[in-house]
Design a protein around this nucleic acid. Structure first.
Lengths: 157, 157
DNA sequence: GCCATCTTTGACTTTCCCTGACCTTGATGT
DNA sequence: ACATCAAGGTCAGGGAAAGTCAAAGATGGC
């Protein structure tokens, strides 16, 4: 008995495969009606199975004409970016570690020096104001995960 | 299925491009008739998409011969980016505004398209997790303020 | 059988867009 | 000056999405 979440996951992935560009746009309500579940079930599936680490980027818009857009990144196994995504960055990342990572990306020729400097500037503790260290490191991790996912995407286009 | 607001936005931007001086003067009623909508819809579009932080100034005059003037702000080579934008950013910045700002910076040749995409990617609500909206907007403002400072420095060295 | 983890649900919230009723300002003719 | 008309402005409200969160339920490993 595969769970509903699992089924929804498969369905979305099937839809994604049909899209040539690896980009799927769909309405949350349509999906939840199709599976006879509450809309927030879709959020659960997206947040547990379509994360940057798993190779997906999700974008949404609310209000009239709202949608959910799911982008599938083609990731190859032995890739610097993918390694960083699965190994180096967990769900917490200190300023020091993020600087180490950007230096590595620069040294690998994945980002420019200027990009490294800009990213470091934005990821500093001093800039991520008004939160506890734990939260800062968690937000930084999220930012860097998304950054890596996008770098991966750009590399393949 | 792009929203009416989006269409109006595009239309205005297209008109603006045709103007050599970056200044467009038009009547609100003409626009609203063209799009078969109420006049105040135009105000909505102007106030959400043509703000200073997105690189625009809007001036209007009421009464007979009234008009809406939309000015696309141009940065000169020796303009101080910080001076020009710090106030506009303020201490709160929504995702939409930050995207407008990066688009502006790109259009003005201050950042590359790739930098714009990377920045947008890490400034999204979805990425700045685990906080209330107020805090998100405040952290985003902080990040963008620091970004402006760095861009300003890099520009003159 | 117990505990941890994953799933499912639904009540409540937020965002975005659009409309219409009513208000303010400026120009013009007398 | 004043009346009138011709702009544009404001604001509250409603509808259409998606988001959040916590509680309840299911599952699986030991």
């Amino acid at each position: 008995m595969s769970s509903l979440s699992k089924q929804i996951e498969e369905y979305i992935k099937a839809l994604l495969e049909q899209e040539s560009g690896g980009v799927l746009e769909i309405q949350r309500n349509i999906l939840s009606e199709y599976f006879h579940c509450v809309p927030s079930q879709i959020n659960y599936v997206l947040s547990t199975r379509f994360t940057p680490v798993q190779g997906y980027l999700v974008e949404t818009r609310r209000g009239g004409g709202g949608f959910v857009r799911i982008v599938s990144l083609q990731l190859d196994e032995d890739d610097d970016i993918q390694d960083a995504l699965t190994d180096a960055v967990g769900d917490m990342l200190t300023q020091k570690d993020s600087e180490g990572l950007t230096a590595y990306l620069y040294q690998q020729g994945i980002i420019s020096q200027r990009e490294m400097l800009l990213l470091n500037g934005i990821l500093k503790d001093r800039v991520l104001t008004g939160m506890e260290k734990g939260q800062r490191d968690s937000v930084r991790a999220s930012m860097v995960q998304h950054l890596l996912a996008m770098l991966n995407m750009m590399r393949h286009t």
